[in-house]
Design a protein around this nucleic acid. Structure first.
Lengths: 202, 202
DNA sequence: AAAGTGGTGTGACAAATGTCATGTTTTGCG
DNA sequence: CGCAAAACATGACATTTGTCACACCACTTT
């Protein structure tokens, strides 16, 4: 009997999967949560064989929970279940040594299959991800540039950003200029749009 | 026996719900699709009692499909199943006379309950929506302003927008100024962010 | 018919933005 | 170490952006 824990903040999917997984003879769902913090507490207590974690959740992301599981040497294996094939997320997941990484546009039967494979010690990554890895942009910005862009994204002016980061206004504008050049765009709007699309912010 | 059709582009949710709904004694899923166009074709042919439609899907949105069902006088009742409580969507759904409107952060049991209620002739809207209706902003922009903002959102400069809409550059900037004033913001970034959040664009 | 209202359109002006040339640390790396 | 590449920082300059006062028109209201 494989014991499971499910962390997924969309209730419709959470409850549907919980019920569906529990119907399998060899699977049993010990519990589920809609946020990362609750999930982490439950997982420490329940020690499931496999934790299925969404990434974007309140309080703690699935990747944060995966890190904690790994740090604490829990026996629990981790499957990340997320919406998009995002290079940034995938890289963090690989670094966290997750046992599986599956996209939500796979059918639920795939999830069941991955759970069983992970329990045999295999590591399973969705093929779309490997493909996407090649094409997807890697974040070319430095920490400082990213900090500036984050402020721009929340609507601050160069002057406000300068004050916030203790820089001269010219410096801020220069970072912006460097950002535009690196991203191949020509203004703040486009830069912010690209950064959001690639999840480079926050 | 209530026959169902499910249109949902996230395979994980689609397949999980399909299986789960089919387990109920009085429900039967005739088919499902991951895009609106396929769904519309199938629904015409299969004439299910209830169609459960996601809004954001490829080809045709769930709201488009709902309109078509209504126009064609099909007997099929419509339940919209979507992620966020978005005033703009909800208004269109009400205009399309849908029989139910449910959020994906409701548990799957709620969906089953709503299906049965809708079949008795009731119309069911998620309570979060009615609450949200009061607080949510209604789009205060004129058509012209919206056209300008849409171009801004795709990163064009005032000069480019002026050329595209056959206006003087000053006029474009004046529209922007009016937009900022109406939205209570002070620059393009914030205006675009607000418009995107409220789905006022495209 | 006059007055009011809201959408549309314009140019002048001040402020913010983006580019560039340049200098100063910090960080690999042979 | 030495030194090259990258990151960090600044001010001068031209362009773009945002504000404002104003004008025109269509459409109500009085």
């Amino acid at each position: 009997m494989i014991t499971l824990y499910l962390a997924e903040d969309q209730s419709m999917l959470n409850s549907a999967l919980t019920q569906l997984l529990d119907l399998e003879d060899d699977l049993h769902v010990l519990g589920s949560a809609g946020d990362g913090a609750t999930a982490w507490q439950d997982i420490q207590r329940l020690k499931p064989d496999v934790a299925i974690l969404d990434i974007e959740m309140p309080k703690l992301t699935g990747l944060d929970v995966a890190d904690k599981i790994h740090e604490s040497d829990l026996p629990t294996k981790v499957i990340i279940l997320t919406t998009f094939a995002q290079k940034a997320y995938f890289e963090r997941a690989v670094a966290a040594k997750v046992n599986g990484y599956l996209l939500k546009d796979s059918p639920s039967d795939d999830l069941i299959a991955v759970i069983r494979k992970v329990m045999t010690g295999q590591t399973i990554y969705a093929p779309e991800l490997v493909t996407n890895m090649v094409t997807a942009e890697s974040n070319p910005l430095t920490d400082r540039e990213l900090a500036v862009l984050a402020e721009v994204a929340s609507g601050l002016s160069s002057k406000q950003i300068a004050a916030s980061l203790f820089l001269s206004e010219g410096t801020v504008r220069n970072y912006l200029s460097a950002i535009f050049s690196k991203l191949g765009v020509h203004n703040r709007i486009e830069a912010v749009e690209m950064a959001k699309r690639n999840k480079w912010l926050a």
